[in-house]
């Protein structure tokens, strides 16, 4: 388990401090999240310096906002150092083509929450993986819960995309925002999470002491 740098909003833009904060949580895994295209430029500049990134598993969350088109996203992602082997993308930023196919297995596609028009279901994601056959799956369990609190959809995602699973995003949702995992959700999510113990779990919001 590790943290997304998105947990540390007060440090936003200060990449050395964000990496240090994520490392305080875990040296096993971390996700460097830069959801605005402009913010991502700052991350690229930081990574160009070749900083020590002392994590066993490290992913970068691609920008989802401020993008002109999928070609713009590709241009940004191709500037990531090759050593970044996992890049989380949202399916609704990818367009209908295979613009990003050259990024191959470095890409992992995240399931979306109910606010998005596309990318929530296993069928939606199957169309994405048909265009990006090498890509993996990032399972955001709170997103799946937001669409189907019975967790049937979450179960279907794990059933159908088991072999592609590379990362779990872990949090609860309140008013569409990621918040720390509640006790109720911890219990509800546990059976499915037990099927994901071999991939990194990334906390998308601070967890309370309890």
């Amino acid at each position: 388990m590790g943290a997304s740098t998105g947990c540390f909003s007060s440090l936003r833009g200060d990449w050395p401090a964000l990496v240090a904060a994520a490392h305080e949580v875990s040296s096993y895994a971390a996700e460097l999240a830069a959801l605005q295209a402009r913010e991502f430029e700052g991350l690229l500049s930081y990574l160009d310096l070749g900083p020590a990134l002392p994590f066993n598993d490290l992913s970068v969350h691609a920008p989802t906002k401020g993008l002109r088109d999928p070609a713009h996203l590709r241009e940004l992602l191709e500037r990531l150092p090759l050593g970044i082997e996992t890049i989380v993308v949202h399916p609704d930023t990818l367009g209908d083509g295979d613009e990003l196919a050259a990024l191959g297995s470095r890409l992992i596609v995240e399931n979306m929450d109910g606010r998005k028009a596309f990318g929530q279901t296993a069928d939606d994601l199957a169309t994405v993986f048909a265009r990006l056959p090498e890509a993996g799956f990032c399972f955001d369990i709170a997103h799946a819960w937001s669409i189907d609190p019975s967790m049937a959809l979450a179960g279907e995602l794990i059933d159908r995309l088991a072999s592609r699973l590379r990362e779990v995003h872990l949090s609860s949702l309140a008013d569409g925002r990621h918040v720390g995992l509640t006790d109720e959700h911890a219990a509800l999510f546990a059976p499915l999470l037990s099927r994901c113990v071999d991939v990194p779990w990334i906390l998308e919001a601070p967890v309370s002491a309890s």
Partner: peptide
Amino acid sequence: EDRSAAWVEARRLGRQ
């Protein structure tokens, strides 16, 4: 190592 796509992929698969 980090300039080789083949190595990065092999390393990732090894970790998996």
